[in-house]
Design a protein around this nucleic acid. Sequence first.
RNA 1: GCGGGCGUGAUGGAACUGGUAGACAUAUCGGACUUAAAAUCCGUGGGCCGUAAGGCCGUGGGGGUUCAAAUCCCCCCGCCCGCACCA
Length: 856
Amino acid sequence: MSRYDPATLEPKWQKAWDEAGTFLATRTGDKPKYYVLEMFPYPSGRIHIGHVRNYTMGDVIARYKLATGHNVLHPMGFDAFGMPAENAAMENGGHPADWIYQNIDTMVEQMKPLGFGLDWSRMFATSDPEYYGQQQALFLDFLKAGLVYRKNAVVNWDPVDMTVLANEQVIDGRGWRSGAEVERRELTQWFFRISDFSEELLDALDGLDDWPAKVKLMQANWIGKSRGLQFAFGLTEATTGHDRVEVYTTRPDTLLGASFIGISPDHPLARELEAHDPKVAEFCAMARRGGTTEEAIEKAEKLGYDTGLTCRHPFDTSWELPVYIANFILMDYGTGAIFGCPAHDQRDLDFARKYGLDVVSTFVPLSGDHVKPEDGGDAYVPPKTEKVHWTLPFNWDAEATGTEAIDAAIRFCEEKGVGHGVTKFRLRDWGLSRQRYWGCPIPVVHCDTCGVVPEKKENLPIELPRDVSFDVPGNPLDRHPTWRQTTCPKCGGAALRETDTMDTFVDSSWYFARFTAPRADTPTDMEEAAYWMNVDQYIGGIEHAILHLLYSRFFARAMHITGHLPEKCKEPFDALFTQGMVTHAIYVTRDENDRPVYHFPEDVEVHESGARLGATGQEVEVIPSAKMSKSKKNVVDPVNIIKTYGADTARWFVLSDSPPERDVEWTAAGAEAANRHLGRVWSLSDRIAQMDPGAAGEGDADLLREMHRTIRDVTLGVESFGFNAAIAKLYAFTNTLSRSKASHAAQREAVMTLAQLMSPMTPHLAEDIWARQGGTGLIAEAAWPVADEAMLVEDTVTLPIQINGKRRSEITVARDASKEEVEKIAMADDAVIRALDGGAPKKVIVVPGRIVNVVV
RNA sequence: GCGGGCGUGAUGGAACUGGUAGACAUAUCGGACUUAAAAUCCGUGGGCCGUAAGGCCGUGGGGGUUCAAAUCCCCCCGCCCGCACCA
């Protein structure tokens, strides 16, 4: 008797698919197309079990769509530019390109044994000059179309290393290498005009029916459309060049509760005061310390500097409000100035209490206990849709919602000539300049006579120079002896290249389009793009819910405008699925100083009594379900898993148990169980293959009915990303089949169908079963089974009977029994008679085909 | 700090659109097979009371809507993701 042996059968079937070209994307016949894409990986060096889960999900869809008669495009590539390659070069010497391409080779080598149905012929890395050269062409077209411009923007500046830091390189406000306090410094940078598309990007979310609601909500909040009032406070005494402070507020209804004006340290007025007053300068310098992230700014202690200036309230010119410079006000949102209403904003309240400013409520709750903030309570911030009692309205009812009051306030102020209603968006333009080497060079030159000049397309790609070093901080392109020297494309005179490279988000904002024609000598081939786009199913992590997806949506529009994508591609991802992570327990012991010492799972033996180190028997603390991280050593290497159990086991396990959108915890016991199950299926098939072909049996109809139910349930599961539920059904059907005494013909049909239903998840095992049962051709190319509707209908249904909402009994009735009939049968049920105790029911609810509830 | 999400037996989870909570799997325990072990197969498998029939409790905590709530609403707790230069 043979045994399930993935080590021999997996390579065998991978070779068979390769030779048949099963997964090459082709435009054959009049089949519909299907484009399935998983977010491409960063080539960190090794694949991660999380990748296995992500790509297995995509592969299930791809194989299922192939089996249901589609031309399938399922490509793979690498997001290869970015900081880690430079960091590796800094730490270990070597060159980022060598590091990254070695990593890519390793990862491809690790991915191939997993048997993904990928069209490897379309593979590329974003660091290939063929790719980034076309990206430069796109940039030039965007520039021509007015979608790119330059302006000043703040960066994290390390004053010791004299270099720009990424947000993740700023730790507690200090540079990660130098330890110096980071400053916010302005640089001239390139920007994409994504904010011009704010309204459109927001409105179009409505059409994305197959995107998770949470992602659409996050994007909508990020774009942040707000209706507010823009107006000016007049300064009591005009200083040089400033007689007013323009503010923007989304709560003009609280204007009568204003108690101070706050301006950003980068506000022109603050700049002006800074120039003449060392104390102001000192405060502004302090306020500019720390990182640039919104998080850092919001979490920092709220500090203000009283400028001594005052403004007049627009509705009461005798009312003067102090002007503070405050560290939490951002210059690039709104006008860089606000008015503070401490009663209805906790941040303003904290600020007011700190600096002894007035607190005036403008509204209170309709009822209930309420401690006003002026009496020591918290700021009162109800939802804008809630009706409140107004103590200081302008012209609206004493009882009105925030929304009603805001609208009324805007109308009132417009009538009085105090400002005007404006719609603003939180979304800012996309800064794409990076002062780093390992990225796509921005294809422009700086000419003393002509200024900033775009490169000529025939000079593309502008390739990165190979001879660079990373021994000193800063951008190697800046200090390269010759690379910068070039001639001006316009006047032919000497000029200097731009040394900024592009944000890696640019690379990942159009790779999905490039996959449709990866070797084209233009960014896209319109005919191929028109055929394969859009991505029918996009799969990736929730961490990309905002930036990557929003940037890609912008890029698709920009590519349409510049003639690189058809109109229908403006929303490039028809359906989106965000999968969860693979987690693993952390094993930790303590050293003599009580510091944690982490251990790899393979060094730990887990028993029901606890976990111990295999080598020493020392007891180990188990922290369950933590995100895998190298430093915590709670990682499992897919390569080891494949070696131990085979690819199918790994694929089966990452899909079973947990719903795909949720995290799944990798456990050795679970992997072993998955492996045992696949072995059982193989043995079952083997047993059936060895039956006498003419063997009769009993229960054929029952087995086949169950088979058709399984076809229905698994198909539904695969189509709705319910892979775990589909696998549960496959377990159940395997149990049914293994107990069946049906004829050989019925069992053979059942096991071949089982193999087909399993084939998207465990393709190698499925091929093997198919071949051993004498199936024709490859199972990967066989048509997906279809459930026979006639086999699915049942004559009777079992209904639960509830008494007062609790299940007490059940009855079996004809499938099409009327409400009256069901009620009659229910009332004759023992449990009901007992509960009624001779009385009449208060109410009987019959939901046909569902439930009966008797209220007594 | 702000925005978004998640929380169900010892464990991973199932439950269609508000309609039998715990499918399927893992651990455990009991049994069969075996000289023995592994593998395999059969059974057990939320808690409490009860010989049983049956009853009570139970989906992070508290409250609410409903004939009926894991599912809808409000408050709280814990964890996760994002916050524009990590990818």
